[in-house]
Design a protein around this nucleic acid. Sequence first.
RNA 1: GGGAGCUUAGCUCAGCUGGUUUAGAGCAUCUGCCUUACAAGCAGAGGGUCGGGGGUUCGAGCCCCUCAGCUCCCACCA
Length: 890
Amino acid sequence: MSTLAAVYSPTEIEEKWYAYWMKHRLFHSEPDEREPYAMVIPPPNVTGVLHMGHMLNNTIQDVLVRRARMLGKNACWVPGTDHASIATEAKVVEKLAREGIKKTDLSREAFLEHAWEWTRRHGGIILEQLKRLGASCDWERTSFTMSEGYSRSVIRVFVDLYNQGKIYRGVRMVNWDPQAQTALSDEEVIHREQQGKLYYLKYYVSDSAATAGAEAARDYVVVATTRPETIFGDTAVCVNPSDERYKRLKGKKLIVPLINREVPVIEDAYVDPEFGTGCLKVTPAHDINDYMLGEKYGLEVIDIFNDNGTLSEKAQLYVGQDRFEVRRQVEVDLAAAGLLEKVEDYVNKVGFSERTNAAIEPKLSMQWFVRMSELAEPALAAVMDDDVLLFPPKFKNTYRYWMENIKDWCISRQLWWGHRIPAWYLPQGGLVVAETAEEALTVAKEKTKNQQLTLSDLRQDEDCLDTWFSSWLWPISVFDANVAGHPEADPSNDLQYYYPTADLVTAPEILFFWVARMIIAGYEWAGGYPFKNVYLTGIVRDKQGRKMSKQLGNSPDPIALIEKYGADGVRLGMLLTSPAGNDLPFDESLCEQGRNFCNKIWNSFRLIKGWEASDAEPQPEHARVAVEWFRELVGKTLLSVADDFDKYRLSEALMELYKLYWDEFSGWYLEAIKPQQGRAMDQKTYRATISIFDAMLRLLHPFMPFITEELWQNLAARKDGESIMVSLQPFVAQEVDESVLDNFEQAKQVVTNIRSVRKEKNIPSKEPLTLLVRGAFSPAAEAIACRLANISQVVSVEENTDALCASFLVKTTEFYLPLGSLVNVAEERKKLEADLAYFKKFLGSVLAKLGNEKFVSSAPENIVALERKKQRDAEAKVASLEEQLKKLKA
RNA sequence: GGGAGCUUAGCUCAGCUGGUUUAGAGCAUCUGCCUUACAAGCAGAGGGUCGGGGGUUCGAGCCCCUCAGCUCCCACCA
């Protein structure tokens, strides 16, 4: 195989095998008699592009699904995309704006046509990118949250919840995004600390002017606020009833600055006298707490903002100006009017829209809500009772806290791109919720007893549903859109077979957005949990620990990385250090390490393929020993890798295989069985090696699918359609013969020691040496040592008579290399003395331990026995070293 | 303001119910080597008073207390 280059070049190989897998439909799954292993992809935004978070996430998923497939399960990884209502709509609005088109100038239908066009043009790019990574998704099952079937399930679920009384409509204080001009759920608001200001404003007492007469003597109070632009919505000022400073205000009225509206002074314990001046302005329309005070005291609600964050007519002043601009202007104008006492720097938390990053405005509006507390009960129990397992488990606490304090979910969005709320308003008031307009009409006729009603009399709700109201059905709807009170009896139904899915891999950021709600939906509409295990990945960060983001520009382009290091190399780079729940500090050098590993595998394959096997050659003992040893070692590694996978410790599983391949297989095994120069290899060793290599490839395949397929295909003649990806993982050995491993370990240490001596004394590896051994040296170890350290003869001695030796100890066995004049007596003595000092010190600590009566009496027997063994070994070593030193002195 | 977690070699992390010689790995570093699979490699080597302090125990990286630093989640203090 001299035609193979010394460097692995992945590009064509990746393309070739991905096409091959697709052509033979190896990713596709249909229900059969095998045990199912299903997994649903966290659907990326339909018009999104791949970022490093996706790379990590999907690499993990692909490893899991490929391994499951190779364990003989019927693996099905369902891909798809999310319509991402607000994000996509924002992009389309932006695109239209560039073309000079305003959304408000378009009809709903026309806008949706643009949105669909955008989706067709940019949609699915991300799925193509996932193919480059090697993702073994069942592309024939690609799903989309706005597809016809999926949409039907979303609408059914809405109707079902409405009929159960779990969906209601009402005016509530919601999070308003003035940029997207829609309501958001609490989860879509991100609170961040902001450097702001605290403004101290003067509110004059209403009747004081009359009594005091002079302007200067007018009584006033100072109110501290971070939002002076909201004073036009003030309808009261509140103080704590126990606050002595403000007793005089009881029953009085105050004048709101600039607009001179009279508002009452109210008293409530909610106000903290310690904060600011202990005087709180109450703006029920624009603050949730103020709203509650307003409810309690029957205050007027004055909404001074338009939907886009500018001031409305109700504000009286600054009408049409933006809220932040007004904040600056009000400060100036208040100061000019002598109504601003002072301004202090102040840090406070402000809510921002997760999508548009606009500052959230609390706003009273009519919205649709889901009553969550009852729905959440089984979902909470599922995680608490370990029916659904979270990895790492620390998220259990967070999950419980959230579920126990769950609030009603605002599901209506003032957007067009999404599932339109299936509610129709009747001409004379009232509404009907139904799956279709036709059904709504039928119900409406019945309800109104008016058979003359037509479709055009009904007006459908303008709002659409929160994206998460569709994605919470993902593990159900991708298999069957007939959810919600429409259970299918057919047992061959995909949902019956694949549900519940096995693993879900996602980011902790969407634990509540998505994971918790999927569990809720699972219990509500599919009769149980949607997945057994949830693997929560970390966040991909750059070297400085910053989160990778578009704004910072610190995120490498995944496709460029794949082109540079190969998909397998990048996959390894993502996995070499990424324990569940911990952040991944990403560094390109990790991909380089991955690429280097691919190259290592590639070259060991070149070596093996270059060998000629001959029946005439007998199997040398050292080769027999190596084969025996390596099989045991693979067996042992398999057990621990399986254990790693059970615990979702993928990095550790990979590292074990990495070391097994690089250090043990390439470094020791292949070196041990290498035939002598110019000679053929014996048939037995050759076949064993091919089979071992085959097993190694299969073990590595879930992590690095492309190179393993390429080499596996070249290892033997394969039929068209055959593939490593549908082969089985090597069998797991039930028992490991530790003595075989121990013997080889001894051989390795002897070899390493001899190499050290050679290096130290400048003895070429080609020069054969004699080895004297005093103590136990297994024949297996001897065979390997002779082969790898170029030992021409091994002599067992009772006592070393030759002083001119280099010596070393492996466990309790003493080894000597007679080197004659090469031995520097002084140096050798120094070395022995250092060893002696070490063992004496060690022996001393062991003896001290054993001399401690309390230790001997209270420590368990096996621990004490172990210490005794340490003592014996150390004593033997000390004796041996002293003996050697004596000889050197003689 | 509440809650959770983290702090072990230059970097990233293992270290399972306290006991396996003097605490491990990968990468990086240093020293030799182009040794006929691989310099994207081979052979060797160095590197840590386990964040500080105190305690429990025959025995602590692991348990308890305390201090310091970092991170995340939740929360309506203007």
